[in-house]
């Protein structure tokens, strides 16, 4: 099953299992089913609760917040994560804050899904990963789709938090298969975190969100084949707040698609330094996109974005010193 189908199935089960659940976003109606087809079949099955909006990101986020405030379950689909900036006020200043700013906790079951990431040549306003802008917001949690965890489980986790959650979905990942790892790697999940390794004690841990998982696994595979170094990939579904329990390793690398500066990886590094300092032989290495806009031309885009090669090189440098 491909990742997009897995998210689609999860949406079907949320809407089927919860009469109060809505899906709101642009161009959602069948046969179109959303720009990336993740909403396919939903409007036909739940015509009253799948609402296709005008091109109005601010309003669709605010409306979802209103539904959530009234006790409904609201899932918003952004066409591109880049346009989150247009819904920032209802998300950050209203929805997230409302959970606590009125003195008693207001439950808000609100999920904002955003197709993120580059690699498709869509250019600077359709390729970003905005995770860094969403971390450290009181009342807001950030999750990311990974090929190693059923989206239905992750949705259940987010809804159980009863607070606004942003769900990052990598656009390239949509067409990838769920649970696929190359031999001799295997994946397992513990406490909402996926671990991909060879079963041997690792020489290095690579922490990466789900969107980078394909590149991360390719890099680890190459590290094993060419350098005989065993690495363990750790993919948390919840990116923020960060909570990671790593095996004792001398080297930790964090890879992500955000641009340089104020990164999610820096947040992870600070967490790992605080918790695992004694085990580390060196500070955590950060791998992220260049501090540049994401160009449209594929060859220029490759210069800016994180590739399997970038991750591999960083791991080799980290281990070799």
């Amino acid at each position: 099953m491909r990742v997009a189908d897995n998210i689609n199935a999860a949406l079907h089960s949320v809407l089927a299992g919860d009469e109060r659940a809505y899906l709101i976003g642009e161009d959602l109606l069948d046969p179109y089913g959303g720009a990336f087809k993740v909403a396919r079949g939903l409007s036909t099955r739940f015509p009253d609760r799948v609402l296709s909006t005008p091109i109005s990101e601010s309003a669709m986020t605010g409306v979802a917040a209103g539904l959530a405030l009234a006790g409904d379950t609201a899932i918003v689909e952004y066409m591109f994560a880049d346009f989150l900036t247009l819904g920032f006020d209802p998300l950050v200043n209203f929805a997230a804050k409302s959970v606590t700013m009125y003195g008693t906790r207001l439950p808000m079951r609100l999920i904002v899904r955003c197709p993120s990431g580059g690699g498709r040549g869509y250019g600077p306003t359709h390729s970003q990963t905005l995770t860094k802008h969403l971390i450290g917001v009181p009342g807001l949690a950030v999750f990311e789709m990974s090929p190693f965890r059923d989206a239905a489980e992750v949705f259940a986790e987010m809804l159980a938090l009863a607070q606004p959650c942003v769900f990052v979905e990598d656009k390239i990942l949509y067409t990838r298969r769920m649970h696929a790892v190359p031999h001799p790697f295997t994946a397992s999940v513990r406490d909402g975190v996926a671990y991909v390794g060879t079963g041997e004690p690792p020489d290095l841990v690579l922490v990466a969100p789900g969107g980078t998982a394909g590149r991360a696994v390719a890099a680890l595979h190459r590290l094993l084949i060419e350098d005989e170094i065993a690495g363990l990939l750790v993919v948390p579904s919840r990116l923020y707040p960060v909570s990671l329990d790593l095996p004792p390793v001398p080297h930790v690398v964090v890879a992500e698609d955000g641009t340089a500066g104020g990164t999610w990886g820096a947040e992870v590094a600070q967490h790992v330094h605080a918790r695992h300092f004694a085990d580390l032989a060196a500070p955590v290495t950060l791998v992220h996109a260049a501090g540049a806009v994401i160009p449209a031309a594929p060859h220029l885009e490759r210069e800016v974005l994180v590739t399997a090669g970038t991750i591999y090189d960083a791991m080799v440098r980290t281990v070799r010193g």
Binding site: D203, I225, E226, D227, E228, I229, V319, R320, G321
Partner: peptide
């Protein structure tokens, strides 16, 4: 460089791989 580096033994693999 790799051959002479101290870390090599710890890694249990003394060779750099070709792409």
């Amino acid at each position: 460089t790799v051959d002479t580096a101290d870390t090599v033994d710890a890694l249990g693999g003394p060779s750099a791989g070709l792409s």
